[in-house]
Nucleic acid binder design. Structure first.
Lengths: 239, 239
DNA sequence: ACAAAAGTGTTCTTGATACACCCATGG
DNA sequence: CCATGGGTGTATCAAGAACACTTTTGT
C-alpha cells in the first residue's frame, strides 16, 4: 500500500455485474441483456457497468439495477455482494475487475432496453446457456449463494410482494432449490420462527381461483433463521 | 461494458487485504503489520498489497501471504475471498478498491518483516484496536465469516497441523467462537461426520504432559458438514 | 360431486444436550 | 493418590420427515 504511483500500472477498470433474480409463474428467472458489439456481440450477458469515480460498488450496482430494470424505486430491493472476479484474461480488451452482486425482485416488470437501449429479457434460469465473458460462472455462483442463504436467513420474503401467502413463499424455496417441499412442515417451520412473517389480520386471497383462500402475511423483522431450514439432502454445500 | 476508454476515468488501484488467522496457545491471533508512512503512519494494519497486471486477486493474495508470513510454501493453506471494499474515501490518497481475503494458518511462524521490511506481529484477536483504513471492519467481517463457516464446513482442520488431536480441533472452534463446547458431544459429532477426520492408526500424542495420550487424526476429504455444527445460541447470524 | 389448494394433527426417527462415569499419564 | 485431559455411556428433549385428514373455494 506504500510507495505507489497512480499511473505506475496499466489501469484497472472496475465494473459491477448483476445477477437479478425474480419469480415468474413459479419459476426462477434471470435478467439478461444482449450485447451489441464485440467481443461476444449478439450473445447474452448479465447487466452491469462501470463503477464511477465517486461511488462505491454497492452504489453502482443499485444504480445499474434501476437503469436495467426500469424501476423507479430500487431502494428497498435486496442487493448483495457476491464476490469479485479478477482473472487477468476475463475480458479480452483490457484488465477488468468485476464486483458481482445478486439482486432479488418481488415482481418482474417487463424487460425493456436499459439506458443504453440494449435489448433485455427475463430468461428462465434453466434455459440460460453460453453467456458472455465469465457470466455463466457468476450466474451459477449467484444462484448457489441465494439458495444457501434461503437456508439460514429470512431472505425468501425479498422475492415476495408486500403481502403474500405461505404458498407463494414456499414457491420461492422450491424454485430456487429446484426441489419440492412438504407443505404442512414448511408452514409449521415458517410460523414457528419468530419474526419471519407476521399475519395480515383478516385478509385472505384467492390463489389461482380454485382452492381455499389463503391467509396473507407480511415480511417480519427477523433476518436470521434459527434453526436453519435445510435443503433436502443437497450434497454440494458451498465451500 | 461497451463504449469504453481505458483512460476515460481516474484510475482505480486494486489491492488485496489479508486477515491471516492462527491459533497460539489456544487463542485466536491475527497477523498485523505496522505502517511506516502516512496516512496512518505508526498504526497497525492488515497485510496486503497491489494486484499486479498479470495476476488475479487470488494470486496476489497468495503471493502476499507468502511474503508477509515468510513461509516458503503457502500452496496448501486455506485462502478465501471475503468481499470487496470500495467506498470512494476509504483511502485518502486515491481511489483504492480492495479485495479482502481470509487465510488460516495451522502453525504460526514468528512474525518478521515482510519483503518491504515492515514490522509485523501476531496480535491476539481480542486486543486489536484502531487499525488503519477500514481494516477494523474487514477484520471483524473476516472473523464472522470464519466463525460461520466452521458451522457448516470442515474448515476447522485448516487451523490444525497435518496430525492433530480432537482436543486441538475443539480448541479451534472454541477460540473462533469464543464459547466452550461439551467435549463428549463434540467428539461424537466430528466422528459421526464421514470424511471430516480420519484416524492415524496406532498413533497417540502426549498433550501438555499431563493426562491420557490422545489419538491422532488427519483432515478428511469432506468439505461440508451435514448436519451443521451450530454455535450455541449465537443470536447474530450473518446476513 | 369433484378438483384444487389451504390448513391441522399425529407418529416416528434423528440429532442435540447435559450429564455421570471410566481410563491413562505425570507429578 | 490426585490432578489433568482423553474417551464412553446414557437419559432426555427438541426438531425434522412422512403422511393422513379436514376445510373452503370454483367448476
Amino acid at each position: 500500500m506504500d510507495g505507489y504511483d497512480k499511473y505506475a500500472f496499466e489501469p484497472f477498470a472496475v465494473t459491477v455485474d448483476l445477477a437479478v433474480f425474480t419469480l415468474r409463474a413459479g419459476a426462477l428467472h434471470v435478467l439478461l441483456v444482449e450485447r451489441g458489439r464485440e467481443p461476444y456481440a449478439g450473445q447474452w450477458a448479465l447487466p452491469g457497468g462501470f463503477v464511477r469515480p465517486d461511488e462505491s460498488a454497492e452504489s453502482a450496482a443499485r444504480r445499474e439495477l434501476g437503469e436495467e430494470t426500469g424501476l423507479t424505486d430500487v431502494s428497498g430491493l435486496h442487493l448483495e455482494q457476491l464476490r469479485t472476479y479478477s482473472e487477468p484474461d476475463r475480458d479480452p480488451r483490457m484488465r477488468v475487475v468485476s464486483v458481482a452482486f445478486a439482486a432479488l425482485l418481488p415482481d418482474a416488470p417487463e424487460a425493456h432496453g436499459g439506458s443504453d437501449a440494449a435489448q433485455a429479457r427475463w430468461a428462465p434460469y434453466g434455459s440460460v446457456r453460453d453467456l458472455a465473458f465469465d457470466h455463466g460462472r457468476i450466474l451459477a455462483d449467484a444462484r448457489e449463494r441465494v439458495g444457501a442463504k434461503l437456508e439460514y436467513t429470512c431472505l425468501a420474503t425479498a422475492f415476495c410482494p408486500p403481502e403474500f401467502t405461505l404458498g407463494e413463499l414456499q414457491q420461492v424455496y422450491e424454485a430456487v432449490w429446484g426441489t419440492a417441499l412438504d407443505r404442512p412442515n414448511f408452514r409449521r417451520k415458517v410460523l414457528a420462527t419468530p419474526g419471519f412473517v407476521e399475519t395480515v389480520p383478516g385478509a385472505a386471497r384467492l390463489t389461482g381461483g380454485r382452492g381455499k383462500p389463503a391467509a396473507l402475511y407480511r415480511a417480519g423483522t427477523a433476518a436470521a433463521l434459527h434453526p436453519p431450514l435445510l435443503r433436502p439432502t443437497p450434497e454440494g454445500r458451498p465451500a
